[in-house]
Design a binder for these strands. Sequence first.
DNA 1: AACTGGATGAATGTATACAGTAGTCCCGCT
DNA 2: AGCGGGACTACTGTATACATTCATCCAGTT
Lengths: 233, 233
Amino acid sequence: MQNLQIGEAPELRHRRTSSDYIADALRDAINGGQLEDGAVLNQVELAEHFGVSRVPVREAIRRLEAEGLVEAAAHRRAVVRGLSLDRIAEVYELRALLEGHLTEQAVPNFDRADVERLNELNRQLREERDHARWLELNAAFHETLYAPAGRPTALELVDSLRQRGERYVQMWSGGRGLERTSQVAKEHTAIVRCVRRGDAAGARDAIVAHIEHTRDAVLKLHRAAAGNGDGSR
Amino acid sequence: MQNLQIGEAPELRHRRTSSDYIADALRDAINGGQLEDGAVLNQVELAEHFGVSRVPVREAIRRLEAEGLVEAAAHRRAVVRGLSLDRIAEVYELRALLEGHLTEQAVPNFDRADVERLNELNRQLREERDHARWLELNAAFHETLYAPAGRPTALELVDSLRQRGERYVQMWSGGRGLERTSQVAKEHTAIVRCVRRGDAAGARDAIVAHIEHTRDAVLKLHRAAAGNGDGSR
DNA sequence: AACTGGATGAATGTATACAGTAGTCCCGCT
DNA sequence: AGCGGGACTACTGTATACATTCATCCAGTT
């Protein structure tokens, strides 16, 4: 009954059910762009595709629905819920607000090791060429930045928002995206500098600016790529 | 194919499935205190209670899980997820942040009719004696305050946070709660005053103060009622 | 010719049945 | 007597089968 010191990660490691697996797979497919906005999620098709019955597929869809990634009215097909430009902008606006708050709370609690970890992650980010790995490192940087705040609920919300916006960042894998990734490293460096000298307000402003720049870059790419009938809804 | 002007409420009115119904019922039971923190959700029991099979019960639980109201590890019983004092405080902290933001965005978009509706709701709040109805009116007041902001995602987040905290407000139904409800009306009046004269920053500060006071009142009641082994987890 | 109405097919929602896992209790061992 | 291991029970996870709803198409009517 006592909490062991070993940590709680292992307990959930391989206990994944089909439903868990399918939910993750669908999430990745949506974020990766294989399932575009408005794509229909047919339970029978998905069940056959994954080689399971419809039951776990349904549960996976329910979860994605609660996460806001798909829309599923009763007795009607579930469809991937796309974000309009306005809503994309709003997601970043909220992230700026929440992550700024988290940063401000976190800075006073940083110790030397935390700062070094942050710096190291940013160094790796500069050198990483593989896009998927880059995204992971970027997520790790932000997590490390917010962890000392000790605000689990805020982290949940931010995670949820990142989840919703992630598919619109995937486009950075090539072309103009490279400019942005190097810019990101610079902005991260500015953040680290503030954290190091314990400047909470400065760090907050820096992360807010960082997220707003990211928003601008995403919107720019999205508008450019929106030759198709998009943006509405 | 065109959007009708009639509105979209009726389309979902009576299309509720068992799963929807059960999810709502469980939510209400959790928020109403019938299901306390740590209560076990046995699928078989619930299915018998509602007179259905386990399938819709499972789907309802998955939703509540995604909403953060219950905790459900694989192959293990789902339990109602209680909030520690720290997490309750955090929920209100986040609400202050988000609702302050929403208010600030909303104020410039208010027209005369919006202000009057807000004022009328506050008037009704002052006179309402039934606690359940009071909670509804209170929710309506806040919704009306934020609607002109045009920020659907932010509203979703706030809804989710209100959902999580609501069960800790139920205690106001009697005793010292009455003091708080009259205080709430006063704070609402201050907010309406700022809205009426278009003072966005003032309205934001007023709503932030309002939510922080609410937090203090909830924490105080919670601490007082916590003679039992509570507070942790 | 356009529209209403119902019948048909396909998809979703639910029930029942089966499979697998985790906790529990009891027995045997040290 | 305390501890470890294995069967048992109860519960969750999944598959299959049935019920219900929705959408589409076609015919009949105005």
